[in-house]
Structures are given as structure tokens and as C-alpha cells.
Design a protein around this nucleic acid. Structure first.
Lengths: 128, 128
DNA sequence: CATGAAATCAGTAATGATTCCTATTTTGAA
DNA sequence: TTCAAAATAGGAATCATTACTGATTTCATG
């Protein structure tokens, strides 16, 4: 149960911190393998899940059926390009007030929300 | 290319309209089979996708890795119970203004957003 | 009503992301 | 140094979904 250090987990975590494009497990695997060729895909998945459960990274489910991961755990929102599928950060003010709106007429307990925006990213707009 | 009538699609569509709990393809399959025992799972998937592409139903991706379907295509929001996994409608006023907030400082084109709320539903709160 | 091309189907195989399994290796407290 | 617990590599298994194929159904047209 106690967490033990693992070089693989360290490398995965380090790699994720260098990226702002919220890579998938597969992308993490391919990149980490450059530095650590023997790592297995299962190890990548297991450690990404572990890091996410510990709250050190964020798992993003943006509707493309593939989990993306983000080392930035601060409150922020994401944009998904419908054309290239890229996931980027959105610099915008908080919209947490929608929680109040949702709670106003609901019997259950609303703890949070998941929101992502979609459309065409700047790059795809320029290169149609 | 031209759409032709199919009894299977009709039954699937009819069934979905009777439900407010946003069933998965598997649930649709099991129920429709009562009335039409020979229908195949592939047909259910194909027609749900077709209906969704035509805009007659909505495909909900609420982050549990399984697609849910909703015959109500009007603008409304959904709540997902973290305990029982149930997906229910949320009666609340529009939060479309978050699109403006998001557009304020973004170079790409924001066309829409996906938002769902999560927490503990009324029923699970009562029966812990 | 008869016909035939296009759409749809049932059944099943294939896919792709993710999880599980097991024998082996690594970690770290005693 | 020791050794139980944790973690790993590699591969098999799972599960939702899609693709394939030969047979069936739909429906515009004669």
C-alpha cells in the first residue's frame, strides 16, 4: 500500500511536466521510451492512473475516447479542436458560478463539473 | 446514400423516446430485443450513430467510457452520479454565457461547449 | 404489380484503448 | 544485509465499438 519510488514513474511525471499539449498514454509511452527503452505500456498506464489518483496530474476526458493527461492541476479549462483533435489550455476567468446555477433546483449533491470547449483552433483556421 | 426506412431504426428511436435515463447502446439492445428478438448489436450501434448524425438524438460522453444516448435534443444539461453512475437531466437556466467568457481571450474559433455536472444523486444520498 | 439497385441487416471478426496477470526485479525499513 | 512489500516487463484478456460480408428489405420506376 505504501508508495515506493520508481524511476519509471519519475520519468513519466517529469515528461508530462515538459508538455503543454496534454498527451495520451500512447504518446507518453513513445516519448518516455526514448529515455527508458524497456518501459512497458502497462507501466505507463498504471503510473498515469496512480499519479492521477494522487492528484499530481489530471486525467482529461475530452470526448475523443482517449484519455489525455495534464501535469497542471490548477483550475483551468480546455479547448479541443474538432479538426486536428489537439487539446490546448484556455486562459479564461473562472466559470465556477455555473455550479450555483446548477444547484439552484436540484435535489442531489452537485460536487463539481467538467467543461470543455470545442471548435477550430487558430492553427487549423489558418491552414484549411 | 438516401435514407430508407427500417423497422429496427424505428423501434430504437421509439424506445429511446420512452426513456429519460439516457441508456447505453447495450441497454438499448437488451430492451429492443424484447420486441424484436433478432436485432443485432451492430444494428443498434449503427442506427444510434445514424440518428445522432442526423441530429435526431444526442450522444452523451459523460466520462465513464460508455456512450449514452438521449432522445431529447433540446439544450439542457446532465448530471452524473459518482456512486451509481446514473445520468439524469438537470433543469437549470442556460449557461451559454460561458462561451463569451471563453472567447474573450482566444485566437481560435469556439463553436460550443460540453458540460456535465457530477456528485451524488438524490437517491444515493438517501441510500448510502 | 414486378423489378432491381441501393440501403439495411444479422452475425461475426477485427480493432483499439485500457486493464489484468504472473514471474521477476527493485525499493527501503528494520 | 535482509526480506517483505511494491513495482516492473511482457503479454494475455477485456470491453466498447467498428468493420466486413452475404442475405434481406425498401422503394422508385417501368
Amino acid at each position: 500500500m505504501a508508495l515506493k519510488y520508481s524511476r519509471q514513474r519519475q520519468i513519466i511525471s517529469d515528461f508530462l511536466m515538459t508538455r503543454k499539449d496534454h498527451p495520451t498514454a500512447e504518446v507518453v509511452y513513445k516519448n518516455v521510451r526514448q529515455e527508458y527503452p524497456n518501459i512497458s505500456l502497462g507501466t505507463v498506464y498504471r503510473n498515469l492512473t496512480l499519479l492521477a489518483d494522487m492528484g499530481e496530474i489530471q486525467r482529461l476526458r475530452v470526448g475523443d475516447g482517449i484519455d489525455h493527461f495534464d501535469a497542471d492541476t490548477s483550475e483551468h479549462y480546455h479547448f479541443v479542436c474538432s479538426k486536428c483533435g489537439g487539446v490546448t489550455d484556455l486562459k479564461m476567468e473562472s466559470i465556477e458560478e455555473i455550479l450555483e446555477t446548477a444547484r439552484r433546483d436540484f435535489a442531489g449533491e452537485i460536487q463539481g463539473h467538467v467543461t470543455y470547449f470545442y471548435g477550430i483552433c487558430d492553427h487549423c483556421k489558418m491552414n484549411p
